[in-house]
């Protein structure tokens, strides 16, 4: 049932580029569950745990030596803001997963500071996910996830884990931080999968 709100006219853009329930913002809001972690770049590493006992790691310089892609994508936060045409530099997960045989279909992404988020491995591949370290041409600011964050723009932005540390490949799906406290397990903005039950 739709309730028309008396006196509300709305002045947002009726924009087909936006998923349902989103509004456009020129800002870049920050959503984090705790303090911004302090990360020592000298000890930074990114890992992929294959799920069959193998663990690959990349140091900061090894990661930055990999082929870098520049992508322009729209991002959609579950708190309703969207930002169109954002530019990022990063390493594609296709590159990082190229020689990896995943033990299962699921991934749990880990961050410095303890944050986690889960998604299917299929959503990390096919040119749809990156480990991003530059935003709008500048090194990624710590409050936005620097030195590096996951970028999975086709899902709500909480899946694009800030301060990313690695990916654990799993046979069984395992809900991450927000997915355990009421947020949707998959999080497709175009299907408005915000919360449990959507």
């Amino acid at each position: 049932m739709t309730v028309v709100t008396r006196g509300f006219k709305g002045r947002g853009t009726r924009d087909a580029q936006l998923p349902p329930g989103q509004y456009l913002t020129p800002d870049f809001p920050v959503l984090s569950a705790g303090p911004t972690p302090r990360i020592d770049p000298t000890g930074w590493e990114f890992f992929i745990a294959t799920g069959s006992g193998e663990r690959r790691t990349w140091s900061w310089s090894q990661l930055r030596a990999l082929p870098t892609e520049t992508v322009m994508v729209d991002i959609h936060c579950v708190t309703k803001w969207s930002k169109l045409g954002t530019t990022w530099d990063g390493v594609s997960l296709d590159t990082l997963l190229a020689d990896v045989e995943p033990a299962g279909d699921f991934a749990l992404v880990h961050s410095y500071g303890g944050y986690t988020t889960n998604l299917p491995v299929a959503d990390l591949t096919g040119g749809r996910a990156w480990v991003a370290f530059r935003y709008a041409g500048a090194e990624l600011d710590p409050e936005h996830g620097g030195p590096a964050r996951l970028l999975v723009p086709h899902l709500y932005f909480w899946k694009s884990a800030k301060w990313v540390r690695g990916v654990e490949l799993l046979r069984q799906d395992q809900p991450g931080f927000w997915e355990s406290v009421g947020y949707h397990n998959y999080g497709d903005p175009w299907r408005e999968q915000r919360y449990w039950g959507d």
Binding site: D27, V30, A33, A136, E139, L140, D141
Partner: peptide, 13 residues
Amino acid sequence: KTERFGPSGGGAA
């Protein structure tokens, strides 16, 4: 535990 709202203070990045 934190809850933040509004844009970041330090510009767009």
